[in-house]
Design a binder for these strands. Sequence first.
DNA 1: TTGAAAGCGCTAACAG
DNA 2: CTGTTAGCGCTTTCAA
Lengths: 338, 338
Amino acid sequence: MNRVTIRDVANRAGVSKTTVSHVLNQTRVVDEATREKVLRAVEELGYRPSQVARSLISKRTKTAGLLISDVSNPFYPDVILGVEEVAFAEDYSIFLCNTNYDLERGLKLVQSLVDRSVDGILFMSSSMSLQMVREATENQVHAVVLDWEDSNLHDIASTITINFESGIQQAIRHLVEAGHRHIAHISGPLNLWTAQVRKNAFLKALELNGVEPQQAPIIEGDLRIEGGRKAFEQLNRMTPRPTAVVAANDLMALGVLWAARNAGLDLPQDLSVVGLDDIDLASKVSPSLSTIALPRREIGKIAMQMLLDMIREGKEAKRSRVTVDTTFVLRQSTQRVG
Amino acid sequence: MNRVTIRDVANRAGVSKTTVSHVLNQTRVVDEATREKVLRAVEELGYRPSQVARSLISKRTKTAGLLISDVSNPFYPDVILGVEEVAFAEDYSIFLCNTNYDLERGLKLVQSLVDRSVDGILFMSSSMSLQMVREATENQVHAVVLDWEDSNLHDIASTITINFESGIQQAIRHLVEAGHRHIAHISGPLNLWTAQVRKNAFLKALELNGVEPQQAPIIEGDLRIEGGRKAFEQLNRMTPRPTAVVAANDLMALGVLWAARNAGLDLPQDLSVVGLDDIDLASKVSPSLSTIALPRREIGKIAMQMLLDMIREGKEAKRSRVTVDTTFVLRQSTQRVG
DNA sequence: TTGAAAGCGCTAACAG
DNA sequence: CTGTTAGCGCTTTCAA
């Protein structure tokens, strides 16, 4: 009733462990007759090679860690599916880890991944530190980092940069062409790198479209629906009230949408709302949400692919950089001003 | 630049590997002076014991698989967080696997988990087969199964049963007391066990509350928003149109809600809607969604705890059964008839 | 075309 | 209180 080992197979087939190993890995020519004996024994005993034993020798575990902020953030599921799609095809398994936006917890998670000798880690949490990445790379664990920068990062990790400027500029241009001049931004927590990036892209886009950035209200939100609601309260007290708002993610945009409707506003006439992420829900609510889309599933696939590339190249793998663009998606929550 | 092993530490500290091992695992008394020498060497070299090597001996990997249908189904994220919460506390790492509702893929995923010698697997995909569970348990991998039954299951796995009857009966009683007599059900795909269970609980609840179950319209949906929309189309063509509908999950309930509003119905006056799951969104939309809540995070915690218990007990672990109740949550999407 | 033996990094008898 | 030795289950020289 104990685990069937390569030894059992060898005995049953009347050959050496070496031969069994070679048959299974097709790593040298074996007489057809013995080959079949071995395969039969494998079949009869239901033998499954131990990946653990294999890993001890090969220094590869065919596992990777995926570090995210929080699965319940709807940004992540599609990314995860993308990662899994390519991982599955290469027989890689994925350890999912939620940092809960906690740097210290993130570091612990990375350490436990390193201890388990994962072949690589995908850093996709928005709470990041260079220390976390170092913890991995200094222990021969490859790293791919999404949407975070540090001057010392590129020496040790591959990176995926999200070009928020493209989509945000399209959105702002659209709004400005529709007559909007009072455009507000609801940002994420400004201690997060990605929140800063989005805010700056917003301000730059205003400038490029001839709107004074200094005038633009910036409200800090929590990236959740509730944050959008609260932000609307503030917007609603402003005089004049902005005619359009670009939120740092879709959840907050929906919060604004719903709070505005509850406050008796007529949408989108009284307020144009733009989200960011293009979560599933964005197209399903009514009015449907205009938003800045990022190719989440694609990001997951690219990230895992980059990681596999690094793993294949081994120790001296070169770090690569990829940028993915964002795109404005016009739906019903935006309209010509007035 | 190679991996630091226990050997390096032993050399540096001028002791044997055994002593290093014992110091690190606190598995026998060691002279304070040598202990410190060892710890200093560990520190200086940045030594991290290889879990892989450990696992080869201990037959434990401190890893578990979590098999779900699809992360983008909002039922799962909270469950995952629950699982991770207790896993993290015990230094377990979780392999996340999406079956995509595909039995064959599910089986492959289980096999790869078994090959990686996970200590256990949490079966939470709604597409299940006994074969999948057997694949695990026959290879000494413990199994906990959520919301699925099979006559041969209890001999090999622990189970968590969701008592849908409690919550659904509360919901139906509420509707009936509010005067509803034409109550429809939008089920999930009826090839799924859990869809059958919910449907049967619905019919039984009608009966218990004096409503003829044969009359009740049952529409099969896809568990997604779109399925709710389509179901509403059908409901809307019925004469008389049902005054209330209980959906098998919140997404479809929201689909009904939004489709009904788009069709010009006044909600909840013209149609009462009840969901199931109590996803985050349910309380955030307006009208907010009355729903049948299940303690998702708790389910995740319980499941992982059950698994850990089995792992601790080892080979002859007894299988346990747990049932969790559901509860009706009254919000704004239901109202007295007429 | 095949096997014996060494060893991956660690733990655990068994001795001293 | 500490070290020697024999493995865990596999791969891989090296030799036949």
